[in-house]
Design a protein around this nucleic acid. Structure first.
Lengths: 183, 183
DNA sequence: GTCTATAGGCAGATAGAC
DNA sequence: GTCTATCTGCCTATAGAC
């Protein structure tokens, strides 16, 4: 029976690989099953629908993101420079750890419209941006926040080797974008 | 016969709208045809395959991008601060003008693997980054360039109203990210 | 230019044996 | 847990009439 947990994990591993390479819709359950040497019917023993594969694959990222936003909300009122830097750093580390899942989130419209995936992600992004800029923020502040997150997100597409070594460079670049209004 | 050009443009307009909302694979030609009050077969009179819709929709962005990269290459040897700012500004304006097509490019894996679409786009991005950082650039320089482009790309997802007014803020943020290594 | 009709295929999902 | 067999439905694309 440890075999079952193994199969489930293998299915998720192969599904993520194929979804990333071809997209969710373009990847059939037959392909996933064939790659694993099992049949489509076996997949349905472990997952009740294809859609559930995406939900499971993106959950670690979304849960981690939710934790970051929650901790941001429980800070003291004032958003200090240090706390903003720590928040962005935590987000960056999450992006690096879950960059494969993130590319799924970013690239699949079906996932983007799913309540437990894309819509949840969108809500988290908006909440996170609001925490970064604080209350009484200008339009320009929001644009800078969006650019800072864009800078962080860009690291998800970097070659594997440069990610770890460039973590601090990316964080500095994002902070520079965020603070580009206050010279 | 002006009707024909009109129909063709209408098809592209509806296709872009549906592709963006649902994704390329999840959008059927039947849906596009129904929305226009014509039949699937009529679509095939104007476009020889579904795939060609994506090629046509992304061409203006890719052609514009290619122009920017070409003009970057024909600069004088030295990448001055002013020329980098102008390049990023041109790219930002293109992103704003073609943001709908860009979201197609970013979100459709089928398009990403197409030689005339995603692969062409990837080549352009790499060439553009190389022009931004110049020769003898460090790993950190490349990371900052990636972050700067990420900051610019983030503006494509902004609410319609903020885009025009925030253009300069976004450009400053991207430049700040790019230059975050040289204090 | 647009239609009707249809070919031909593969998708997601289920039933029930082992 | 995994299989075989099958249902049902929609897809892209084409042929040929109008």
């Amino acid at each position: 029976m440890p075999e079952s947990a193994g199969t489930r994990a293998e299915i998720l591993r192969v599904a993520l690989e194929l979804f990333r390479a071809q997209g969710y819709d373009a990847t059939s359950l037959r392909q996933i099953a064939e790659r694993l040497g099992i049949t489509k019917a076996a997949l349905y023993y472990h997952f009740k629908a294809k859609e559930q594969l995406v939900v499971e694959l993106t959950r670690p990222f979304l849960d981690g993101f939710a934790d970051i936003v929650a901790s941001a909300r429980s800070r003291d009122r004032e958003a200090t420079d240090a706390s903003v830097e720590e928040l962005l750093g935590q987000y960056l580390d999450l992006i690096i750890a879950e960059h494969a899942a993130l590319s799924l989130l970013a690239s699949d419209p079906a996932a983007l419209n799913h309540p437990d995936v894309g819509l949840r992600g969108g809500t988290l992004v908006r909440a996170f941006q609001a925490e970064l800029v604080g209350r009484e923020a200008s339009d320009a502040d929001h644009i800078r926040a969006a650019c800072a997150l864009g800078a962080v997100n860009a690291t998800a597409g970097l070659p594997e080797g440069q990610v770890a070594s460039g973590r601090d460079d990316a964080l500095r670049a994002a902070l520079a974008a965020l603070r580009s209004g206050t010279e």
